[in-house]
Measured scan of single mutants.
Amino acid sequence: NQASVVANQLIPIQTALTLVMMRSEVVTPVGIPAEDIPRLVSMQVNRAVPLGTTLMPDMVKGYA
């Protein structure tokens, strides 16, 4: 099973992502693949992302 990127904390809207905000976890449905974590650093979320939420491509500006 492929690991996805999951929020390690509440990430407020417009926040630039850092490594400490994300973790990898095998979840359903599958979100952004964990191997993309380095690419996500400094990208902004376009909505508030609660703790434990799987990051989906449409939540990160410039990802999809």
Rank of each mutant, 00 (worst) to 15 (best):
N1K: 08
N1I: 15
Q2R: 07
Q2G: 14
A3F: 09
V6E: 02
V6A: 03
V6D: 02
V6S: 00
V6H: 02
V6C: 05
A7T: 09
A7D: 01
Q9R: 14
L10R: 11
L10N: 15
L10M: 15
I11Y: 00
I11F: 03
P12G: 06
P12L: 07
I13Q: 15
I13N: 15
I13D: 15
Q14M: 11
T15V: 10
T15F: 05
A16K: 09
L17M: 14
T18F: 04
L19T: 07
V20L: 14
V20D: 10
V20T: 15
M21P: 01
M21R: 00
M21E: 00
M21V: 03
M22N: 00
M22E: 02
M22S: 00
M22D: 01
M22Y: 03
R23V: 06
R23S: 06
S24Q: 11
S24F: 06
S24L: 06
E25I: 06
V26E: 15
V26T: 10
V27E: 01
V27T: 11
T28Y: 11
P29S: 04
P29K: 05
P29T: 05
V30L: 13
G31Y: 04
I32Q: 01
I32F: 01
A34E: 09
E35Q: 12
D36R: 09
P38A: 13
P38Q: 14
R39V: 09
R39H: 10
L40Y: 02
V41Q: 06
V41K: 03
Q44P: 07
V45Q: 01
V45C: 08
V45W: 02
N46T: 14
R47W: 09
A48T: 15
A48V: 12
A48S: 12
P50D: 15
P50T: 10
P50R: 12
L51C: 13
L51D: 14
L51V: 11
G52W: 04
T53R: 10
L55C: 02
L55Y: 03
L55F: 09
M56C: 07
M56I: 07
P57W: 10
P57E: 07
D58E: 14
D58C: 15
D58W: 14
M59T: 05
V60T: 00
V60W: 03
K61V: 14
G62N: 14
Y63P: 03
Y63R: 02
Y63H: 04
A64G: 14
A64S: 14
A64P: 11
A64T: 13
